[in-house]
Design a protein around this nucleic acid. Structure first.
Length: 162
DNA sequence: GAGTGCGTATAAG
DNA sequence: CTTATACGCACTC
């Protein structure tokens, strides 16, 4: 059973889904709400029982964007490589940024920069898996699944106050 | 096996 | 600054 719901954030509306274990998906809707929902459908299948719960979504929104809580339980499942990259992402301190190259190097595969970038791009849980903290080695923002503007805003938000 | 991608470094226009 | 070229490797078809 997957429970999902919609809520608002300082960076626009998002959809969040979770299993009994934790959050399995958190994506900003932005301009392509339809595509995001389609992605969910293909990833979990139309036969997976779901239950709408915007109350749950609102609570998560409060914890993340007001209390700035980042250690919420997650429920991820994908390739070993992607899982390793995502886990590595969570070790990046809040407010810090790293390059795709250094991230790859940190994992002991300094020549797999591009592959690491692909894995980062496949992250289904925004903010909690801080894929927005990974930027180009020359300091430029780089790409972001939900728009470079949101990526930049997230970084600045993390670097501001508390 | 071929094509692709949230990259990077270097060379050239 | 914007193309072009090459390298790299996980992933998808």
């Amino acid at each position: 059973m997957i429970r999902y719901g919609y809520a608002d954030s300082p960076f626009g509306p998002f959809i969040v889904a979770c299993t009994e274990e934790g959050i399995c998906d958190l994506q900003f809707l932005g301009n392509n709400k339809r595509q995001v929902i389609h992605e969910l459908g293909t990833r979990w299948g139309v036969y997976t029982p779901t239950e709408a719960d915007n109350e749950m979504a609102a609570q998560i929104a409060r914890q993340i964007f007001q209390e700035r809580k980042t250690d919420l339980p997650l429920s991820l499942s994908d390739t070993d490589f992607r899982m390793r990259v995502w886990q590595e992402l969570r070790s990046i301190p809040k407010g810090c940024t790293v390059s795709y190259a250094s991230l790859a190097a940190r994992m002991g595969m300094p020549t797999a920069t591009r592959a690491v970038a692909s894995a980062v791009a496949a992250n289904p849980v925004a903010v909690l898996v801080p894929c927005h903290r990974v930027i180009h080695s020359d300091g430029s923002i780089g790409e972001y699944h939900w728009g470079a503007d949101i990526k930049k805003a997230l970084i600045e938000w993390e670097q501001s106050e508390v």
